[in-house]
Design a protein around this nucleic acid. Sequence first.
DNA 1: CATGAATGAGGCTTCATTCAT
DNA 2: AATGAATGAAGCCTCATTCAT
Lengths: 200, 200, 200, 200
Amino acid sequence: MTKDIKAKEERKFDIVLAAIRLFSRDGFYATRVPDIAKEVGMSAGNIYNYFKSKEDLAKCAIRYCTNVLANKLREINNMDITTREKIEHFVKGYFEVVEKFPELTEFFLRVYLANREVFSKRCDNGYECASEFIEEVGRLLDNGAAAGDLQKQDFHVAFSMIMGPLGCFTFLTGENVLEKNVIKYAPDIAENIYLALSKR
Amino acid sequence: MTKDIKAKEERKFDIVLAAIRLFSRDGFYATRVPDIAKEVGMSAGNIYNYFKSKEDLAKCAIRYCTNVLANKLREINNMDITTREKIEHFVKGYFEVVEKFPELTEFFLRVYLANREVFSKRCDNGYECASEFIEEVGRLLDNGAAAGDLQKQDFHVAFSMIMGPLGCFTFLTGENVLEKNVIKYAPDIAENIYLALSKR
Amino acid sequence: MTKDIKAKEERKFDIVLAAIRLFSRDGFYATRVPDIAKEVGMSAGNIYNYFKSKEDLAKCAIRYCTNVLANKLREINNMDITTREKIEHFVKGYFEVVEKFPELTEFFLRVYLANREVFSKRCDNGYECASEFIEEVGRLLDNGAAAGDLQKQDFHVAFSMIMGPLGCFTFLTGENVLEKNVIKYAPDIAENIYLALSKR
Amino acid sequence: MTKDIKAKEERKFDIVLAAIRLFSRDGFYATRVPDIAKEVGMSAGNIYNYFKSKEDLAKCAIRYCTNVLANKLREINNMDITTREKIEHFVKGYFEVVEKFPELTEFFLRVYLANREVFSKRCDNGYECASEFIEEVGRLLDNGAAAGDLQKQDFHVAFSMIMGPLGCFTFLTGENVLEKNVIKYAPDIAENIYLALSKR
DNA sequence: CATGAATGAGGCTTCATTCAT
DNA sequence: AATGAATGAAGCCTCATTCAT
């Protein structure tokens, strides 16, 4: 019983991973349900025993990606280190995901940012889908300001200074135009972000 | 004769504008050719007298968007002002586009950045499609460094510090989560960018 | 222009007729849209330029069938003859339809009576879909009673004595169990109905 | 052993009843096998331990419904009462079924009469599936004629005068358009039928 | 006998694109 | 250049049925 339920959850997770892989490579629309099924090694029809629709699957995938990043950032937020170190850790951590599991961030960029029509029905706006992660960014900034490390700024302004460059690097990695491994860029990016946000 | 050709070019432009409008709102795939036709006030079939395919139309649209931004930045680059002022002008100019012609930047974000499969066939990578604009960003950075205003940095690192936040704000505007008019954020964003990139 | 619209209406009518043909023979579900398309000589996709869905097509077909019968009965109601003659005319007229256009009545029996789930969404109940026809039956009975020819009776009771036997013969014709041509049964059926309903 | 077989038969009967319930409500095609399984409280797969196919199940259901009505009519035929009383009893008995077990007659009307394609494969024509019942109607008419109560008539004509109105009322009940309880209509219907068929 | 995950065939529908007018 | 009916290729999804457990 319990074992079967566990097996079912695992199978569901397999599908999500496969979907992320293909969605990030080919986009939401160009990825066909049978493609995903093949990637997991099951029949297309069976996908529908796990997810209500292709859209539903994409939403689950987004939620998973958001969680991974949110958890990563939450851990860092809970560490007892300086704000500057937190930013360094986060940029490095994010880039590690970009390197080791590029589909995750690519998927985020390609499917979430770009196919709003897919998500806007469930989430009031796509933004909310990622709320967990966004809140964590908020904590990073608030704590930094409280500690006197960061300049007090409008949230969206500060948010864009962190996530903008990271998103940009996700894109550049996907375009294959970087000369070095992404991770190599982490220290410089972190420093730039810190310079932009730190108390002047 | 010449007049007819001119008329044809104008009609073509009308279609491009309509396409940008709809693509940016609904995405590339969810926008149907008949929708675009209706928006311009012509029949679906007639679109094909102007563009080889829906993809072709999207590429023309991207080229147009890239040009608008590239021209804007080129003008600024040619002005005889400090690097800091150039960044301020550029951020403000970009945000003006976001406000007055939000479809343009939205289209860029949603269709170009995210639907690689649509563009990668013509451009070797989608990145090159925007090369004209990217080169201009390069000039901004190089001149700034030559003038001793900016720290010498890896191009992609610096690029991401400029275009990342701007892209992020394009997204936030589209999501309707900003409390103030976009333009109001320009000075702060410009300052942050300058702090990140300036000589230390 | 006008001609095109007319042509389009005619084409639409062709599709309705083909649909009635196939629906009556194979039932609503067993008839596939491509089958109908083939019967009219067009592609399956093109059907959707005329009807929103297979269901929509079935509803149009039902409306057409109802109208044919309602018109027939209305004409008879307007004639200056005895109630008995009206019933004779109606039974004969109905059986002529059963003979010459068996699909029409069969379709009515098979699709309308049996596939309520298809129609109940648009019509509050399937009954209302045929209201025009039912009203005409009401007029036949009311006028007959007013003329002193028919016994005053509950509408549904009288209605069932007319349409019940006719529906039953529609079914028997479809089952191919009648020894004689349907029309031959008309006088006897008409007499039976008259005996059941006439003033005692 | 015997007990198990009995249990199995009972389980089979449960399934038939559930099927009649759902088929009559939603039609043959719109009812899914898992729906039936859920209604009985078993798994979809298990249905196939009792019936070869969905079609097979529908045929069993029809046979059951036919038997119920045939038995009822046979009993009445065997009673020592006048033909008129027999007709009264039958109409009343039929309407009692319509009231107490509406699914049975509804199922008959919706699935059997209208989904010929489902039954015609096993029975030469769907008509024969109900032969037991139909024969009993024949006995009612023959005995009535032999007793000098009914006019000698073509079987199908007389049959349609009985079963037509009853079928019609089954439909009207299903459509929820009757003001009174069905049973209340029995005497009038019976009288009408008798007037139509009795010796003149 | 019972389960329910899995299959696979096939249906409805959409849509870019073509083409006769 | 303009129309819009027509095509045909796919895609999503459903569901009866099977089968390993």
